[in-house]
Design a protein around this nucleic acid. Structure first.
Lengths: 343, 343
DNA sequence: TTGTAAGCGTTATCAA
DNA sequence: TTGATAACGCTTACAA
């Protein structure tokens, strides 16, 4: 790495003191117009890059914010942080992105790293709703917006899409189409989204007078593979239920739903003729699947926008005011649910 | 933000000097085992988070690396930086992610920000192959691995998937299936990937004795929308060509191909009966589209893995050795190409 | 309008 | 084995 050009070098060359350079570079009106211009010119000539570390160390302004998610590859999250990144870029902030992979230890490491890095704030989709990790954030008084779940702490900002309502919407649509035995391919059991989703599933079923069967509720990782494996086991008789025990499948994520499409190919069943399927998230590709996936839309762009605006507002106004935003999901009817007549 | 706990606070409480604390925290064997343990204990009690800014300022080791891409939301890139992030996390590095949106000015800003942030190295998919931006990187002697294109500078590390070969593979497959009039929905004209891809397209056509028609070559943004718009214009007679002028479409990206699927829905044509389609990248969802998309696979995981390993190697060994890796794409035949008999 | 000096939280060197 | 001190590059009073 080449030795860095600092304000001292510029000062020396310009024949002024380094604090004058500092002021000139910040366009402090106190400095003479001529010297200001000259110093800017020299800085440019010398390829001067201000050292954010030094700046941050002194002023506590690092112009950096952290994003901590459980799966940065997921199209769901990437749509969210895309808009966050755009806003940040416009405001001169940089974004540190971390993946917790649904792991509390990793999440803890990510949080402490963020603190060590001196971020001005974070947006986090936490692994759990009441872990010690959240306490770390609270203790440190780190400016934070939670997304995708609602931690069980009152003094917290969040932007949340109502997963319970989403599950309710899905169950309702399935029931309207004659389904009663609905296999739920949920996310990991420890994940709060899974719990909210489960709650919506159960309550809607109960409200409709349909018996809840525990064997139809599965907690799996959010991936094509785990979804596929689950169905394989069922089809190959390695499971407590058989392929006759349900007529519809709903999932916590479109990615899991895609796993069902893969299973359909491998196990030779038809969607929606053999099983109706409803996903969740409404990621880009779902519209073009065969058949187009009926799913529950999450307002991802708004989640991103609201969360970053909330965070920036807190940072800029040093505000302590709590903001809680709950967004509603929306049913998108396409072609993966079929009306059936029960005997 | 709460006032930070520093080694000075710990030192005071422990009744030792702060430099002893520093050594103890780094497990320097020179310090007495008892004091070492005591200091670690206190640090933990006090919620001490080492200040990376100060550390970086002093030691030049920020444990941070930067990733600069043209579209962080793209499933293609996200698969790449997912593996990069995993490796980084394991090694105690953090990742700054920036989006250049195919814009040279934004890219420049991203690069200078990275430098200002004191990253130890960057992985970049540059907008162009010979911009001043690359010169900035070279001038600063910033440790860098280029991906997804090959800048026209000799002293550079890269991991590149041969786009020319990819286009060639696509054209070949189309020709084998009887197609001669192949609409190319390429990326932005200024993008080097587009140029490589174009070259492969043209050379394969030429080698096969097929006339190259310039009207069949289109440079568009990599998005569903622009792809859709292009086809709409053609269908609505707002273009120099008509819908009869081609029998197949190939694209620089699966995302563009998805735009064709959208167009098929809106404009009521059938894939592959009316048009054969070949994509590029092989992103997750393509396998489940209707019909499953025939595409050219890019080894994304390997691109990520090789590039981060290359970079880390450079950083850790302070090596100046140049490494150039070229990976080969691979044709994935699925259902979106149909054999036709020309009259 | 410009310069001086202290300090941010570390690391690293040298002395005790 | 521990402590004092300078330095990293910047911001920010305060003095000139």
């Amino acid at each position: 790495m080449k030795k860095n050009v600092t304000i001292k070098h510029i000062a020396e060359y310009a024949g002024v003191s380094f604090s004058t350079v500092a002021k000139a570079l910040r366009n402090d009106p106190v400095v003479n117009e001529k010297t200001r211009v000259k110093i800017h010119y020299i800085a440019r000539e010398f390829n001067y890059y201000p050292n954010i570390l030094a700046k941050g160390l002194r002023s506590k302004k690092t112009k950096t914010i952290g994003i901590i998610l459980n799966d940065i590859q997921s199209p769901f999250y990437s749509e969210i942080y895309k808009v966050i990144g755009d806003v940040l870029n416009k405001q001169g902030y940089t974004m540190i992105l971390c993946d917790s992979s649904f792991d509390l230890e990793l999440e803890k490491k990510n949080i402490t790293t963020m603190i060590s890095q001196g971020v001005e704030g974070i947006i986090i989709s936490s692994v759990s709703e009441k872990s010690d990790n959240i306490q770390i954030i609270l203790d440190y008084d780190l400016k934070t917006v939670f997304i995708d779940n609602i931690p069980e702490f009152s003094n917290i900002n969040y932007v949340y899409v109502n997963h319970e309502e989403a599950a309710s919407l899905a169950v309702e649509h399935l029931i309207e189409n004659g389904h009663r035995d609905i296999l739920l391919l949920n996310g990991p059991e420890g994940l709060s989204s899974s719990q909210h989703f489960l709650k919506g599933y159960m309550e809607k079923l109960r409200a409709s007078g349909i018996e809840i069967k525990n064997e139809l509720i599965r907690f799996i990782g959010i991936s094509v593979e785990e979804s596929l494996d689950t169905l394989k086991n069922i089809f190959f008789g390695k499971d407590s239920i058989t392929k006759k025990d349900f007529t519809a499948i709903m999932t916590l994520s479109d990615v899991i739903a895609i796993g069902i499409y893969e299973a359909a190919q491998q196990l030779q069943f038809a969607i929606p003729d053999d099983y109706s399927v409803i996903g969740y998230d409404n990621i880009l590709a779902t519209k073009y699947l065969a058949p187009p996936l009926t799913t529950i839309h999450q307002p991802k762009k708004r989640t991103g926008l609201y969360s970053i605006n909330l965070l920036l507002e807190q940072i800029n106004n040093d505000s302590k005011e709590l903001k809680k935003i709950i967004l509603s999901p929306e049913l998108i009817v396409r072609g993966s649910v079929k009306k059936i007549n029960r005997c």
